[in-house]
Write a protein that binds this DNA or RNA. Structure first.
Lengths: 146, 146
DNA sequence: CTGTATCCTTCTCGATACTG
DNA sequence: CAGTATCGAGAAGGATACAG
């Protein structure tokens, strides 16, 4: 698997505030920052889908694959491994043949899903505003440039 | 600028529920889905930093650049343009020389920032759990494989 | 100062093939 | 069934040079 634990080894550097006496600021740009880790997970193309599906019921690998249209076997595996490692999803292997592996949300995962809903709600509430802003912006650009 | 409006043109296809009579599901995998748009924006390496900084005060381009350690001029420009287009940030050009351009949050941007704080709070509250889950997982892997 | 354009490296991810 | 391994295409993003 080529994806390592941390996403890009390049410049895992400084926090936002300068070295001197700036105000404290809770986020930094490092990939290993806690907020970034969760952000990267929930913004991941597949993670959120998996979490949402598992919030309703326990599912097998293939069931997940079938439900999530367009996911490759590889990415589903990678996604599930990340979620499992972060303690958001529990993986249960039933020692039978053919193998039966089931995935379900942990309480932590369920709690994250709940929190993310706030963001979804916000988006629902403001999608029209955003669309309008884009149209306005694009219109302005079109008449300025061409 | 190589980044287009939509991020990847490949397979902007189906929703999660099947074509038949599955339960309704609010997210799909298309890049142009509203939730994904916002998710991609807030998970962007720099967008959130910019929003957080502008939440406190209005800043010029160079001030932002100085505050955000490690951002390239190119990415700051790209980020600000996206945020402006989405109506989250307002850009004001003062017609003086040398040019003076100021950025500030719109009410929409401020409201998003507020919403995102819920996620930050969740992360703060659960970062220890996540770290422990990771350690446990890594330990299990280490003793199984090597 | 505030960008835009170009090049070039790195990373991501899907496709494919193979295994227990 | 549930993965793992490998490869290659494409996208993201930093460095650099240049412009209004």
């Amino acid at each position: 698997m080529e994806e390592g634990t941390s996403k890009s080894p390049t410049h895992a550097q400084g926090t936002v505030e300068g070295p001197c006496c700036e105000e404290a600021f809770q986020w930094d740009t490092r990939e290993d920052c806690e907020v970034r880790q969760i952000l990267d997970r929930i913004a991941d193309k597949w993670s959120l889908l998996v979490i949402a599906l598992l919030d309703k019921r326990r599912l097998r690998f293939t069931e997940l694959r079938r439900e999530i249209d367009g996911v490759s076997q590889r990415m589903l595996t990678v996604t599930l491994r990340q979620l499992e490692r972060d303690g958001l999803v529990r993986r249960t292997v039933h020692p039978v043949v053919p193998p039966r592996v089931e995935y379900e949300l942990t309480p932590l995962g369920a709690s994250l899903h709940e929190t993310v809903q706030a963001l979804v709600t916000w988006t629902d509430a403001h999608q029209r505003e955003i669309a309008e802003a884009r149209n306005a912006y694009d219109a302005r650009m079109r008449q300025q440039v061409p």
